[in-house]
Design a protein around this nucleic acid. Structure first.
Lengths: 229, 229
DNA sequence: CGAGCGTTTGAGACAATTCAAGAGATGTGG
DNA sequence: CCACATCTCTTGAATTGTCTCAAACGCTCG
């Protein structure tokens, strides 16, 4: 986990992570924020549940999962995070992280100190709007697993969600590499590992997807959308 | 659906809905916001899915549910809302409501025009903080149904969530009236109506709760918490 | 008092889980 | 660079929790 100084105004992900259309004055203000970069190896924690909240994190590269541990000791996956997405917003309220974030692969994040951010949002209206909007996006129902839906439905949703989010980041909408294991998908979707595996083979037999280990190809997007119900 | 002019500085719910500790100057600024009250009968819509987003709503009295309709026509309940809680935050991002909000009983809300709110947050730091905090709270994992959990677990969670939220509002933590039907609970928790009913009778037989129709009494809070696992 | 809706209870069906085993990758050390 | 250990993924068979279908009960309100 190493660190570098960064300036958002020169970042290639800025159009995703902070798409603001700032005036020169505002840009100057933004670059007073002390943004650092930190690098992570697979399975390294970004923050841990119950730690005091200080920073938000924007993903530069790689991916993360957030997890909670139930009192009975099993791990529940709360979400997956891709480049350009922010982690830690849930902790503003309690001033403590309520889950643990772990790197799914070699990854890098920008560290955004929360107090510096709120100072900036106070004088940059479009930045305030952006934070509101980003938090609002996460409140939308399609961001959560519908407990009424079938296993097939949940997996279709996850694949399409990943597809859309990769597309926004300039990757292929139809072909990508899953950075999480079957078990992690299961613990996110509320399904047994075996069920995830079975559904994947089913979808492949129906020629809706092709899948070899973690490489997926969405062959028939229309049928996949139909499965979402 | 009738309307009245309101001033937050004289509202009895202000300590819940906008607990800000404002300076006199800030209070003056806040009271320039044109807050109206609207009243609702059971099952009246507050907003509908796909309508353009203009207002946030704070509940003064009564309760609401938010629902989405799946393409196959069935209703999924996304959440329940009690006095002091805000509705519509999810719509900031798309500038459109993504669900329909319906009154569960006779209810009243404060209408908060979003543009006026963001103007106010820009000059009242504690108000900005409050909005961030409120949105952040909704991102916490205990706000969502864990698709991994058993029917018993889900119902225990819902009961305890309602209990806590009623407590904050000065009602009894142990005894309250459910404003939603078994069916609505089921559609929220991802369970059949019959399952909800069965679990309630089970919990009553174990002397963990007492329940008669919609009147609940949480007899053994500890055991109920254990069930949350 | 009867109509209608919400709730409860029972029995059979089914989707997903658990348990069990094997196949296929990936990594390590000699 | 191969051999072995380990991890992940797949497949099968039995089990189980929840759902669906069906019917009866009990409020509530006209």
């Amino acid at each position: 986990m190493s660190e570098y100084k960064l300036d958002c105004s020169h970042c290639s992900l800025a159009s995703l992570c902070m798409p603001l259309g700032l005036t020169p004055d505002e840009l100057k203000l933004l670059s007073t924020m002390a943004i650092e970069q930190r690098n992570f190896k697979p399975n390294e924690p970004l923050f841990r549940s119950e730690q005091p909240f200080t920073n938000l994190y924007a993903i530069r590269s790689g991916s993360f999962k957030t997890v909670t541990i139930t009192p009975s000791g099993s791990e529940h996956v709360v979400g997956f995070y891709l480049p350009g997405e922010w982690l830690g917003l849930h902790a503003i309220h309690r001033q403590r992280y309520a889950m643990t974030a772990l790197a799914l692969e070699t990854s890098a994040v920008c560290v955004i100190p929360y107090t510096e951010l709120t100072t900036a949002t106070q004088s940059i209206p479009s930045l305030q709007q952006y934070v509101f909007s980003m938090m609002s996006e996460k409140l939308n129902p399609d961001r959560y697993v519908d407990p009424n839906s079938s296993a097939e439905n949940r997996i279709a949703r996850l694949l399409l969600s990943l597809s859309q989010r990769y597309t926004r980041r300039g990757y292929s909408a139809r072909e990508f590499r899953l950075s999480m294991s079957r078990e992690e998908m299961g613990r996110y979707l509320g399904l047994a590992t075996e069920t995830v595996s079975r559904i994947f083979t089913q979808l492949a037999q129906q020629n809706i997807i092709e899948i070899q280990r973690r490489e997926v190809k969405l062959v028939d997007l229309e049928q996949l959308e139909d499965l979402m119900g």
